[in-house]
């Protein structure tokens, strides 16, 4: 990475954090719940995409079972919260549960390379989803007393905090020595090991950060919804959404997943008005095009356009 690109990344990060700070004023400016719900969805998606990107973008490990960790975070947080634990503690416990669960899986699964890791985690996610759907088939609903005191703005600010945290984490990780080692692993694992990078440890470190953040996002989801099926949080669509947003924005960068989340959620909501699920035809097509022709996503497209201008 050249210093120039680094500076640009820094500018992007600062811009994103400033925008997030400005969004803190939104609940004061508008009382419209649909606007707040929409921005909430974008913020949750940013957190989810950044968390997936930490493993896939930085270390190059495509995790197709990410929903399992999101779901675990949601399950633990919801359970503890409904037992009377403060939501912050419940969410932290959910994140910890996701990360702790990820460790033995990572230790085993990181022996699998490339496609094997992806299909292994895909199977794992499905195991958890089916089991949860069997054990907890009932819909989970908040007690009536809690519905009465439900405040959307609390959820909104929590989402804002989480999205900011995920961007800061991704930025710090990317600039750190560990992040450099991770990118080395992504480019060539054998060469990285040969030059003294502890590949397994760094992969586990990225996995813990990634799944812990996904667990936090799951906790936010559990805090946000008045009622949902516990297995819904384990649905593979969470993984697919995170993957699409990250790749469309630009995998392996700090601002790519943010751009991807904004574009993805906006278009999805717009299209859903008329055609439910049709957004997947469009985004699936865009995604394939990106993999084939523009592996850097929107971020790379922006760089190409800039280069065109500089040349002329």
């Amino acid at each position: 990475m050249t210093p120039l690109a680094n500076r640009r990344e820094l500018a992007w990060g600062a811009g994103i954090l400033l925008s997030l700070a400005a969004l803190a004023l939104l609940p004061l400016a508008t009382r419209r719940d649909d606007v707040l719900n929409f921005v909430f969805l974008i913020l949750l998606s940013i957190t989810l995409a950044e968390s997936w990107n930490m493993l896939a973008g930085y270390v190059g490990q495509v995790n197709l079972g990410h929903a399992a960790f999101f779901g675990l975070g949601a399950l633990v947080a919801r359970t503890l919260w409904s037992l009377g634990t403060p939501i912050f503690l419940a969410m932290l416990a959910g994140a910890a549960a996701a990360a702790v669960f990820a460790l033995p899986i990572g230790a085993a699964a990181f022996r699998l390379r490339g496609a094997y890791f992806a299909v292994g985690t895909l199977a794992l996610g499905e195991i958890l989803r089916t089991t949860v759907a069997n054990v907890l088939p009932e819909i989970s609903t908040l007690p009536t007393a809690d519905i009465g005191t439900y405040r959307l703005s609390h959820r909104y600010y929590l989402a804002l905090a989480l999205a900011s945290l995920s961007v800061v984490m991704a930025g710090l990780l990317g600039a750190s020595r560990a992040g450099l080692g991770m990118r080395a692993i992504r480019e060539d694992e054998d060469a990285a090991e040969a030059s003294g990078v502890g590949a397994l440890w760094l992969k586990l470190f990225a996995l813990v950060l990634s799944t812990g953040l996904a667990g936090l996002a799951g906790g936010l989801f559990a805090f946000y919804h008045i009622s949902y099926y516990p297995s819904h949080a384990f649905s593979p669509t969470w993984t697919f959404d995170a993957l699409l947003m990250t790749f469309i924005g630009g995998v392996g960068t700090v601002h790519g997943p943010v751009l991807g989340a904004v574009v993805y959620v906006t278009l999805k909501e717009y299209l859903a008005v008329r055609w439910v699920d049709f957004h997947l035809v469009i985004f699936g097509g865009i995604f394939i095009t990106i993999v084939l022709l523009l592996p850097g996503g929107l971020v790379q497209a922006g760089a190409r356009v800039r280069r065109l201008f500089h040349r002329s």
Partner: peptide, 24 residues
């Protein structure tokens, strides 16, 4: 290595598109 990873991603995108098209 690139082949394995990219084909996986393309297959994944194709699966999404075909599924959504079939629903539609």
């Amino acid at each position: 290595e690139t082949r394995e990873k990219n084909s996986l991603l393309i297959g994944f995108g194709l699966a999404l598109v075909l599924h959504a098209l079939a629903v539609r």
